[in-house]
Amino acid sequence: MASMANQGAPERRPGIPGTPGGQPRGRGLSMRTRQLFWVWGFLALPVLFYGVIRFYPTLNAFWLSLTDWDLMSEPEFIGIDNYTRMFSDPEFWKVFRNTFTYLIVGTPISLVLSFLIAFALDRIRFGHTFLRALYFLPYITTASAMAWVWRWFYQPAPIGFINDLLGRVGIPQMAFLNSTTWALPSIMVTAIWAGLGFQIIIFMAGLRAIPTTYYEAARIDGLGEASILRRITLPLLKPTTVFLVVFSSIGFLRIFDQVYNMTTNDPGGPLGSTKPLVLMIYQTAFSSYEMGYAAAQTVVLFTILLCVSLLQLWLLRER
């Protein structure tokens, strides 16, 4: 809009003195300068917003991580004490392992699943829109509402949905959220299911973007379906895949809603077996009020997110 307004400006220029609200400051400036002026005028708001709401607190967190701020007294500089405490805390490493389990197991499973579903959905015509909507529905559902429904599914008998079914066919109960082994996978299933819809839609858009002429040429050349998938579909889907890998990884590294809502009685439990880094940060900051220590954990999370994103971009770069 800014450029459109400016395009008309040279013609109106001689009339400026008589125009109410005309800009005398614009006189004598080149069109390019004026365009830049407008562009920055419009950009100023988001830049200011991000600067104050995002970047300033982010930078501030680095400083806070070197202090002992407890929200009640003035922060005091304590060097890297928070970091040494964190790295020598077995609880932190457990949480660290949990977070990476969510990432390393969750991301590939969710991507393979969503690709398979998108690939199949792309081929069917009957009920296509309905099925697509069905898969997308969880994505637009509030995470906490979803988590509570799954929490109910996982309960032991007599109220748990899955255990009730198992009981009816004579299979012993699964402990799910009450087991240190199965609680994390149980929550991961919920998280994967919740993100599936979005990934399917993106994959389908990617599949649709591949020109059909490639497929036709391949079939004429006598290539089998498996080869087509391997040599045409997957390589051409690479930009889509890169985007989804990064997006989904960040999602799993920041997992919180599902875990917190499914384990509210013992957040991140049992015995910390499901606790991700973000939940630990939340508890350190808003339950123990150790803001400095929480900031140090945040810096670690920030670094991990940065590294993982850069690593993935590098691994999947265009050669």
């Binding site: 402990a175 240190t180 013992d266 049992p270 015995l271 339950s287 123990s288």
Partner: peptide, 20 residues
């Protein structure tokens, strides 16, 4: 001193026996 943390400690104490 820290009610939430001390409660969590008791929860974990029982869970270590009951689950693990």
């Amino acid at each position: 001193i820290d009610e939430a943390a001390q409660r969590q400690n008791a929860i974990d104490m029982a869970n270590r026996i009951l689950i693990d």
